[in-house]
């Protein structure tokens, strides 16, 4: 049975004059999935999020939510909870900002506002004008804005930036709760691979507007074994012949299949080498991208 996609980005291109910010980009998101967008600065992550939210119009291609084109049916974006560079009216208080937003949905949400302000630990600052808020506080208030109404899809642009560890944890927990308890899909961008690794189910990498990678994080339950020893070309050859998939980095032999340890040890001993160090590490995104030695 095929998966049913809630959001489909189909061959989206966004061009600003001569500059192509997104190039023929496609991706899908299912119900309850947490997807992280990663990529260097200016890769096109925020542009993609802006297009999905309906802030920007694609130059080509389309975004479908629940099978409806977002550009042709802008009303469906009302279901989105969005946190992209959180915007407020900074001359009024945090509470008034939320109240104003709740008026837009024509609902009285005093209890929900209180609940959210307490959850984000902003309740004591609720009467303060937003212009007096720190960046982290604004980020928390942005989360309140996002969750004020019932959300069908959560979109966050670099949500962990400027947050203290408690704030970060709050955001992560919220994302996990939304996805796993309420089955709401979450799409967020981040530069922090540790954060991404911790909470997301799938990672999509963008570089210069092009999709470089789209894969589930299946490595979460896998491990890399590292053996430290003196490695000569002769040993490398012997190991590769007998053990197959190994990788070498400086004086380290790295592999995923722990059953190979005995074979490797035997070959090293036959060649008169000893193991100087040994470690087993849970795989993460950094190791996937070769950012850890």
């Amino acid at each position: 049975m095929g998966q049913e996609y809630l959001l489909q980005v189909q061959n989206v291109t966004k061009q600003y004059g001569e500059k192509i910010a997104l190039n023929d980009f496609s991706m899908d998101i299912c119900q309850g999935e947490i997807v992280a967008l990663i990529g260097e600065n200016g890769a096109g992550k925020t542009t993609l999020l802006n297009i999905i939210c309906g802030y920007c119009k694609p130059s080509a291609g389309q975004v479908q939510y629940k099978g409806k084109n977002i550009v042709a049916n802008p009303l469906i974006t009302r279901e989105f909870g969005v946190l992209i560079e959180p915007q407020f009216l900074d001359y009024i208080s945090a509470e008034e900002n939320l109240r104003l937003l709740s008026q837009l949905t024509n609902q009285k949400q005093d209890i929900r506002i209180k609940e959210l302000l307490e959850k984000t630990e902003l309740y004591s600052s609720r009467k303060k004008k937003v212009k007096e808020f720190s960046f982290g506080m604004k980020q928390r208030l942005g989360l309140c804005q996002c969750l004020l109404t019932e959300v069908g899809f959560l979109i966050l642009d670099e949500p962990f930036v400027g947050l203290d560890p408690i704030g970060k944890e709050l955001f992560k927990q919220t994302i996990l709760d939304m996805a796993h308890k309420q089955n709401v899909p979450v799409l967020f961008s981040s530069h922090d691979l540790d954060d991404v690794d911790e909470i997301c189910d799938r990672v999509v990498m963008i570089s210069k507007g092009n999709k470089q990678l789209d894969q589930p994080l299946e490595h979460k339950q896998t491990y890399t074994v590292k053996i430290e020893c003196t490695i000569s070309d002769d040993i490398k050859r012997s190991l590769m012949e007998k053990c197959g998939e190994l990788s070498f980095f400086e004086d380290k032999i790295m592999f995923q299949d722990e059953t190979l340890i005995i074979d490797i040890q035997k070959i090293l001993l036959q060649k008169g080498h000893y193991i100087c160090g040994f470690s087993v590490q849970k795989n993460n995104l950094k190791s996937l991208f070769g950012m850890e030695g």
Partner: peptide, 15 residues
């Protein structure tokens, strides 16, 4: 310019 108009965009939908 400061993008605070986005407060409306999602919640209203119709520009």
């Amino acid at each position: 310019e400061n993008k605070s108009i986005r407060l409306y965009v999602n919640r209203i939908g119709v520009r």
